[in-house]
Design a binder for these strands. Structure first.
Lengths: 224, 224
DNA sequence: CTGGCTCTCAAACGCGGGTTTTAAACGATA
DNA sequence: TATCGTTTAAAACCCGCGTTTGAGAGCCAG
């Protein structure tokens, strides 16, 4: 995990479409992402993945180097996609408001990409669960990235500082931390619990309503 | 994990003080809690625990039945303690306001126990991290408890319904979900990230200030 | 002293895990 | 067809893991 991966020439190009690659590698990639997202990283073995994907056991090590490297490649690609989409929305909101987007639109750029991907019909639905899991059960390499690579979040923090000039920066960072916690709690298991608590009143499949609720809640918190 | 544990006669009495038991069992208990909380459940082996505690390898299986049973006993005891303290605070708040506590005091009963325990000087500091971890990386038995045992949360939901009669119940459940997400995000790793993002501006060691910030944020969200 | 009970200890067992190996099949090229 | 790099196949390897075993130490009651 610490030394350079053997497949660096292939794995390095992040915006690579899995479908373009060898069918076996692509099958391993999507199957692993699904199984990891559903059952957790440590609870899925290389044998589980290859059996479910219908490929040979050695495929993981041949195409990705190791199980951890496979995990890391999924992690890098999905987080890159998510960050890119968030940055795009933030940039658009900034353009719409002369470089000073309001709090509500900043929060929309933060919340909407993972929420829209969580739609039952969306193909990236499983990717969101994978990313959320990486935050708590990820490899040391993933946590290292999460800990040190704050450039993506800094754009949002700076935007919020611009939108709330009267607020102490310390306060803004903490509230951003709270808002992020709202997203990270959107795991399947938590939805199940909420469903049991509310006697089926809450339906997380209605992502548009959920998105509005999250933005309303967080916006009120920021403007408090 | 599915069949009844062999040490049920001992393990069942939840309000048991570890210090009262055999020194070896107590050492295993506190050492396991600390290692699990710091390094994750799957990353800590029975050998790690017993070596760190300075006891024999077989101690875990002798005193607790299995590694999973040990994990589960820590989980049960700590969550019971936390829930009891929360219920106590909610009850007191209810008494102070004739059975209809305001939103702010309900949130205080929800946030204050885990936050106060997170104080660097508090002996239960590590227990909070353990409980948070159980939510995402816990055993199937733990998740079963978390999924089905919603009686504790229902008291808070009912109190919030009483405090916000004009709000749709569906809305209240969702906002409670958001508030819980704020707590569950208080992991050491997340604090580190926030620390890096804010250039050291945020100090999670000041739990009183953090508690006030969390209540302010969530209260505004509920009253939105 | 002696029996029985609780607890500790060192050693080993069995198994599932990630990984490696070796050979064969494949595909493009000359 | 012959050749070479790439990919797949089946099998084995080896290590760490949770757990079990059987012997023995300590201790208290009879």
């Amino acid at each position: 995990m610490t030394d350079a991966p053997a497949q660096a020439d292939i794995a390095d190009e992040l915006p690579l479409d899995p479908e373009r690659e060898a069918a076996t590698k692509a099958a391993v990639f999507v199957t692993a992402e699904r199984l990891f997202a559903l059952n957790g990283f440590q609870n899925v073995s290389v044998r589980d993945i290859t059996a479910d994907a219908g490929v040979n056991l050695a495929s993981v090590n041949y195409h990705f180097g190791s199980k951890d490297a496979l995990l890391f490649e999924i992690f890098r690609r999905r987080t890159a996609e998510l960050n890119r989409e968030r940055a795009r929305m933030l940039h658009q909101a900034s353009d719409r408001h002369g470089g000073k987007p309001p709090v509500r639109e900043i929060l929309a750029a933060l919340f909407e990409p993972p929420l829209r991907w969580s739609n039952p019909a969306h193909e990236r639905r499983i990717s969101v669960q994978f990313i959320i899991r990486a935050r708590s059960e990820g490899t040391e390499a993933m946590k290292e990235v999460l800990r040190t690579d704050v450039s993506h979040l800094r754009r949002f923090a700076d935007a919020l500082i611009g939108a709330l000039p009267h607020l102490a920066r310390e306060e803004i960072y903490w509230r951003l931390h709270f808002a992020l916690g709202m997203i990270h709690n959107n795991r399947f298991a938590e939805f199940d619990r909420l469903h049991a608590l509310s006697d089926g009143l809450t339906r997380e499949s209605d992502v548009d309503a959920l998105l509005k609720r999250m933005i309303d809640f967080a916006e009120a918190g920021f403007l408090a």
